[in-house]
Computed example of a mutant assay.
Amino acid sequence: MTTPLPDRAAIARDTARALIEIEAIRISPERPFMFSSGLASPVYIDCRRIISFPNIRERLMDHATAILRAEIGLEAVEAIAGGETAGIPFAAWIAANTRLPMHYVRKRPKGYGPNAQVEGVIPQGQRVLLIEDLTTDGGSKVRFVNALRRAGAQVADCLVIFYYDIFPQTRAMLADHGLRLHSLANWQDILTVADDPGPFNPGDLAEIRAFLDDPLDWSARHGGAARLTL
Rank of each mutant, 00 (worst) to 15 (best):
P114S: 12
C158D: 01
I94S: 09
I67Y: 00
A147N: 10
R57N: 11
L212C: 10
R49N: 03
R180L: 09
D217Y: 01
F33R: 05
M102V: 09
G178M: 01
E71G: 06
V142Q: 00
V77W: 14
P6Y: 10
S28E: 06
D137P: 00
E30D: 14
L100A: 11
Y112P: 03
M61E: 08
V105N: 03
Q169C: 00
G223H: 09
V155D: 07
P101A: 01
I51M: 13
V43D: 04
M173K: 08
A151T: 09
G120C: 06
L68S: 11
A225I: 06
L19Q: 00
R106Y: 11
C47V: 08
V121E: 14
P202R: 05
L191R: 10
N55K: 15
E119K: 07
T65N: 11
N186E: 11
N115A: 15
H222W: 04
L212R: 14
Q117C: 04
G125T: 10
A76W: 12
L39I: 13
T3E: 14
Y112H: 15
N201Y: 04
R26L: 13
K107G: 12
R180D: 14
E84N: 14
L216Q: 03
Y44E: 03
R209T: 12
I88P: 14
D204Y: 12
G224L: 01
V142P: 03
A92P: 02
R180E: 15
P54K: 06
E207N: 07
T136K: 00
R59L: 09
G152L: 05
R31Q: 07
I208Q: 12
A91E: 05
I190S: 09
W187P: 10
R108E: 15
I131F: 07
R48H: 02
D195N: 14
D195G: 14
A206F: 00
T2G: 03
L100G: 02
P29A: 04
Q154A: 15
R108K: 15
G73S: 08
A91Y: 11
P4F: 09
T3W: 13
L181P: 12
L134G: 02
A9K: 12
L148H: 10
